[in-house]
Simulated assay, not measured.
Amino acid sequence: MTWADFWTLIDTLNGEADEASCRRLAEELRNRPVPEIIGFADRHAEALYRLDQEKFGVLPVVNMTDRIGSPSPQSADHFLYTRCAVVAAGRAAWEDVFFDVDKFVPFTSTQYDGEWLLHVPGQAYELATGQAWDRSTRYCFETFSNKDGWPHLQN
């Protein structure tokens, strides 16, 4: 799947990865050949992997503080869901954050949660084939998997 095709599909989310929009995207994907569903999963994983960088991951959660009033850091899961929200916002938003870290900041708010987007490839695959998704993608999208994005973690 080309990046252009991937972003066209992402546009069906209308900028939000809520349950309804992600279900709509899975329904759209189910009508495509299985290699395209797999290609979507690979592009999605790569988009998340590229965002897996310290400069984004160390940003605190917007409008959230701990008990003593210090900014609350993102957990690994929150950072993954935030990255999904950035992808769901579309190509322009995704590209913009690489050039201006401040454009990533609003997505750390708890009002943005892109977790549903993680389930789209599996849902689409199951709808298309009747079988459970049991595949790995070329890129791991879990937080801290992009070693180049977290240079201080390298040994």
Rank of each mutant, 00 (worst) to 15 (best):
154 Q>N: 06
65 T>E: 12
21 S>K: 10
90 G>E: 02
19 E>I: 05
39 G>C: 09
100 D>P: 00
147 K>V: 09
14 N>G: 14
90 G>S: 05
38 I>F: 06
53 Q>T: 08
144 F>G: 02
147 K>Y: 06
98 F>C: 08
83 R>G: 00
38 I>P: 07
122 G>I: 04
63 N>E: 15
151 P>I: 01
21 S>D: 04
32 R>C: 08
97 V>P: 01
64 M>T: 14
68 I>R: 15
113 D>Q: 01
53 Q>Y: 02
49 Y>H: 15
31 N>Y: 12
142 E>K: 11
107 F>W: 09
75 S>K: 10
83 R>I: 00
89 A>V: 06
155 N>I: 10
126 E>D: 13
62 V>C: 05
65 T>N: 09
134 D>R: 14
50 R>G: 08
78 H>I: 07
96 D>H: 12
44 H>S: 11
63 N>I: 08
133 W>P: 01
20 A>T: 09
111 Q>T: 14
43 R>E: 06
74 Q>L: 14
48 L>P: 03
21 S>E: 10
55 K>R: 15
114 G>D: 02
6 F>C: 01
103 K>Y: 03
124 A>K: 04
144 F>Y: 12
124 A>Y: 02
3 W>T: 14
34 V>N: 11
124 A>L: 06
138 R>H: 06
3 W>M: 15
125 Y>K: 08
25 L>F: 01
78 H>T: 11
100 D>N: 13
141 F>D: 04
19 E>M: 04
18 D>H: 09
106 P>F: 00
65 T>Q: 13
95 E>R: 11
129 T>G: 05
96 D>P: 03
89 A>M: 07
93 A>M: 01
28 E>G: 02
127 L>R: 08
83 R>W: 01
87 V>K: 02
24 R>G: 04
4 A>I: 11
7 W>S: 08
